[in-house]
């Protein structure tokens, strides 16, 4: 993993919208301690904003009543939390064992060429971001690509071409 500790400070206050607020209150009753809401609250933030800012972490910590450092730890430990804005279409390519055996590199190379992006980068126009991720649990239908959370299995370059064409 690379260092994830450089948080972005937006200078703007953060708070949950009405829907997330309600979901937070629904979930908090399910746990005997409020700290258990750290991961769910980080998810709610990411759903709402697409990523998690320093202000959001402070908000979560204060709302839960825990140390900002503990929420900060979780936000950086769990790599699915985006700590900066991603492209409108976030493409994750599984890089691990079975996908590697079944040609994930062709997928990565194609996307690199086609989008002009290396894994870990976000396009200047914000349309795409690319990321190589560890095992996505779809080894039987490798290689697998996840776009905006949706799985695309048994990928090859042709399928990828038609998939890219559908993305805005």
């Amino acid at each position: 993993m690379s260092d994830r500790s450089k948080l972005i400070v937006t200078g703007k206050p953060f708070r949950f919208d009405q829907e997330r607020d309600a979901e937070f209150e629904r979930l908090v009753k399910r746990y005997p301690t409020r700290e258990s809401m750290i991961l769910p609250a980080l998810w709610l933030t990411q759903e709402q904003e697409g990523w998690i800012s320093a202000e959001a972490i402070a908000y979560i910590a204060d709302r839960i009543g825990t140390f900002a450092s503990q929420v900060f730890e979780c936000a950086t430990f769990y790599t699915m939390y985006n700590l900066h804005p991603m492209g409108r279409n976030h493409i994750c390519i599984c890089r691990t064992l079975s996908c590697w055996l079944r040609g994930k590199q062709e997928i990565v190379d194609y996307l690199k060429n086609e989008l002009g992006l290396k894994p870990g980068e976000i396009g200047a126009d914000g349309k795409f971001s690319l990321e190589e991720v560890e095992c996505l649990g779809h080894c039987g239908t490798a290689p697998v690509v996840q776009v905006n959370g949706e799985f695309h299995e048994s990928m090859d370059v042709d399928k990828l071409k038609s998939l890219l064409a559908t993305l805005k």
Partner: peptide
């Protein structure tokens, strides 16, 4: 019980730090 410090990241990227502004 002030909890200013934390260890962020994981693997050999783990490090002690403070939260920005705190």
């Amino acid at each position: 019980k002030t909890g200013e410090l934390g260890i962020v990241n994981r693997s050999d990227e783990a490090r002690v730090t403070t939260f920005p502004g705190r």
